[in-house]
Simulated assay, not measured.
Amino acid sequence: MITRPVADIIEQLELDGDTIVTVDRLASVMDEVGATGSPRMLAYELQRDGWLGTLRSRGAWEFLPGSRAGSYSSGDRFLEFRAQHALRMGWPGVLAMESSASLLGLAQRIPDREVIALPDDAAFPKAMNGQWRCVRIEIPNEGVTVINDLPTWDREGLLVGIGIRPSGYKDTPGLGQWLSDPPFDVDTDKVLRLLASASAAARQRTAYLLQASGNREAAHKIIDANPPTETAWIGPRSQGGRYDSVTRVSDTRLHPYLSVGGGS
């Protein structure tokens, strides 16, 4: 039987629309409704009674509201990602690559493993090992947006992230498909700002991706701002592929999946 204080806590979690519950969150709600006791013991009690679902992230649980008519998970594929943000204020993880493309409505399939971007000095959470993939790319905040309470690269951030590390986008056919579905409109000035501290090769590859998408005006603007002096590569440095003389990019990986644009 649920006691009145516990019922009040569950009601508050439902009213607030909580998806992830942490010990600190329970302590806050207990204080809000005037309940006493240990938040951690309350978490164990709520888990035992089917109100909290187990996650791999220690100290965090999925809230299972009564509206689901049973202890059923929401099936949200980003639960562990949400948990890490709930557990660590200011944690810098951002959805990236295929995960970002999926949230932005570009990719037509869900990735086999979700992808986050982290700076070099941030540890990859143990709870995400095996089920998630990490790329070590730090896109400026201007290239990050929030969708469904999830921080993710926006269109410009995604394009620049792929330009920085094209090997980080594993679904090459999928990339070619959505990139070839014109028009791939971007804020070119924003792309240039995001590329400000990137390498010359990253700028060339980003321009090539834009040109391949049919956005030649944006590609030329990037190249005109930083004329290339050497060849940059997308894919392994091998014979064959496509060489684009405008961006000076040799593409041995992506070009078979592109249906618009083209090199010379």
Results as ranks from 00 to 15, higher is better:
Tyr44Ser: 12
Leu46Asn: 10
Gln47Gly: 11
Arg48Asp: 07
Arg48Cys: 00
Arg48Ser: 13
Gly50Asp: 00
Leu52Gln: 09
Gly53Leu: 04
Leu55Asn: 06
Leu55Tyr: 10
Arg56Gln: 12
Arg56Val: 01
Ser57Asn: 03
Gly59Arg: 07
Ala60Val: 13
Trp61Thr: 05
Glu62Cys: 07
Glu62Leu: 08
Glu62Asn: 10
Leu64Ala: 04
Gly66His: 08
Arg68Tyr: 14
Ala69His: 15
Ala69Val: 07
Gly70Arg: 07
Tyr72Arg: 08
Tyr72Cys: 00
Asp76Met: 02
Leu79Gln: 09
Glu80His: 11
Phe81Gly: 06
Arg82Gln: 12
Arg82Met: 11
His85Arg: 15
Ala86Lys: 11
Met89Glu: 14
Gly90Leu: 07
Trp91Cys: 02
Trp91Ala: 14
Met97Cys: 07
Met97Gly: 04
Ser99His: 07
Ser102Arg: 09
Leu104Gly: 11
Leu104Trp: 11
Gly105Phe: 10
Leu106Pro: 00
Ala107Met: 11
Gln108Ser: 14
Arg109Asn: 11
Arg109Tyr: 04
Arg109Glu: 15
Ile110Trp: 14
Glu114Ser: 06
Glu114Asn: 09
Ala117Phe: 08
Leu118Ala: 06
Pro119Glu: 11
Asp120Tyr: 09
Asp121Thr: 06
Asp121Ile: 03
Ala122Trp: 03
Ala122Lys: 01
Ala123Asp: 15
Phe124Pro: 02
Phe124Lys: 03
Pro125Asp: 06
Pro125Phe: 10
Lys126Tyr: 03
Lys126Arg: 15
Lys126Trp: 01
Lys126Ser: 14
Ala127Cys: 11
Trp132Ser: 13
Val135Arg: 10
Arg136Asp: 03
Pro140Lys: 05
Asn141Ala: 15
